[in-house]
Amino acid sequence: MQNRLTTISVHTVLLVYTAIALLPMLLIVSNAFKSRRAIFADPLALPGPDTFSLKGFSKVLAVSDFGLYFVNSLTVTLVTLALVLLFAAMAAWALSEYRFRGRLVLGVLFAVGIMVPIRLGTVSILELMVALDLTNTLTALILVYTAQGLPLAIFILAEFIAQIPKDLKDAARCDGVGEVHIFFSIVVPLIRPAIATVAIFVMVPIWNDLWFPLILSPGEGTQTITLGVQQFVGQYVTDWNAVLAALTLAIVPVLALYLVLSRQLVRGLTAGAVK
């Protein structure tokens, strides 16, 4: 940078935008810890000894089953993640390693799924789930999210698998290592960094989704955290303490996880952008 003035103006712009990005969230979280009176009297103030209150949180935890929603979201996200990673890695390996008839067609079929949102098939998905007697189960969500996550995961993993040197696989074949073992003992350990990236791409939309929980499993006991918050806020819209507390409960775990994983995430996005 050429001079101090440029430096200062660059930082000013970035700081202003950072404030725009963060302020709304800080406002919600800080007011969630305040009494109702203080929320309205001085929304911009941080909670102090006089204004501190956990009333909202006790209300949320008393009247709704937040713990359960959280466990539901966690179950759906983690099981889906495991299925997507395993199946996508296997398919990506086969599609990029072997030349067989129908390979191109399969590749195109999966590629289409990257662009076409699975939501458009909702009418039939619901019919299918009714027929399979899976409505209001987490299984329904897991199956749909797995189908949703596979195409992009296959695409990214195939790019990484293509970078594994040919010699490595040939060496193993000369040693008499079977294809299944080559996959699990050599390919999987080598694409571990990519798997972490894919994990983030797969997890975030699932954790945050409202559409499919709303349609496939809105029933008592199977709500995810996003749907649970949506229903709660709709019901207690006038109870500001409770609404702010509910939003805070939804925001904080995601933020905490994000701050832990941010380095990995940005690296993943950056790597994906190269293509």
Binding site: L83, G121, V123, V144, A147, L150
Partner: peptide, 9 residues
């Protein structure tokens, strides 16, 4: 999984 829950629907 992809065929049944994405392509088919």
């Amino acid at each position: 999984i992809y065929a049944v829950f994405s392509v088919y629907p």
